[in-house]
Amino acid sequence: MIWQLDLILCLFIIICAIAAINVKDLLAAVIILGAYSFFMCLLWTEMGAVDVAFTEASVGAGVGTVLFIAAVSKTKRRSKD
């Protein structure tokens, strides 16, 4: 575990989380959440949890993003906050 890489990945994750919450366009927020999941996957590989990492990459970032995009396309894309 390299602490510099760990710190940089943690900062990217926090930036992605804040951006996903504050963006008004819901489709953009969902895509940023997918980027957040991929950064999480990198962090887990760096921590040595390879099985969790590929589960997150396939299930969390893949299926989760597809589900969210389907929901946004079925409903409204704009949000007020």
Partner: peptide
């Protein structure tokens, strides 16, 4: 947040923080 999709995104972030 008032939007329900935003609430769901927040729930995902909360869960992944605990898993981390």
């Amino acid at each position: 947040k008032k939007n329900l999709v935003k609430k769901l995104i927040g729930m995902n972030i909360f869960q992944s923080a605990i898993i981390l």
